[in-house]
Amino acid sequence: MKRVGSLARVAATRPAATRISPAVLSRPFASSSSSSSPADFHRTITPGPTSRSRLKDHYNQTLSHDLLYTLYSHATHTNADALPNPSSRSPMWSPENPYALNRPPPRPKGNRYLVPNPSYTSPESLPVLESIVVETMTTSALSAKSNLLPLLMAYQAITGEVPQSRHPGPYGPGSGKGLVITRSAKKSASFKVRAGAPTGVKVELRGESMYSFLETLVDFVLPRLKTFSGIPLPPASHPRQSPSSTSGVVSFGLPPEAMGLFPQIEINLDQYPKTFGMNIFCVTSARGRGAQDQARALLSGFGAPFVKRG
């Protein structure tokens, strides 16, 4: 996909009658919201996308069509009805057992999740990129919380998200939006970690910001990262039923050098006292057997390189 900015010219040649009246656009923002007070207005407002996403359009126009054929498995498609329901095989308490009264059903053996059956190949069952979670942990945060500041600023520049605030609002607690400070769950005396000590920064990207992050990563960062040959594929012996194979998440890590290659940071790299590595989790809608392969096919279609481990 080439990037060609010819929209201005298109707009210039279009007859004026088909354009939407500027008066509609210049209406005060508050009048379009149903809120009563200015404080409510800021809480309820949700800014939409400021431009269309190139990768999303690529998915709709080309990639989804190709995935429909690439991911088609005739055996799965024809047997989708005949497969036994996995939840029917899950263990049950004996009704005579008094211990079982008012208890939830026992957990399945083997420490494995119940894997859903593969379904028909259809536009609805195609994998979609749901979110990208970017996360960094740094031991330097344990000694002083302020060591997280450069990391926060770098994340703000890379992802365009602002830190989650303590106040209610679009980036408030529990919103799932914005930069979140991660905290240690357990204490560990040997690592000098207290329970609840800040350890790093995490952000969940969705929608437009997710696609623009992936686009930046694939177009500017990964091709220039000399130590990166591709997202490693697991060995052939990797169990097909393992949680990592069935959850449809493609995860990989980037070294600290990668942060300096993001264009947003590259323009004033001197401003940042330190660069950090990051873990990236691309969460897709694929679930069940073969979900990892579907997720990789999707990411590969977006231009992410994969490599076999030597």
Binding site: M1, K2, V4, S6, V10, Q61
Partner: peptide
């Protein structure tokens, strides 16, 4: 496949 996005 298409090389450009459709016009807005």
């Amino acid at each position: 496949p298409p090389l450009l996005l459709p016009a807005l």
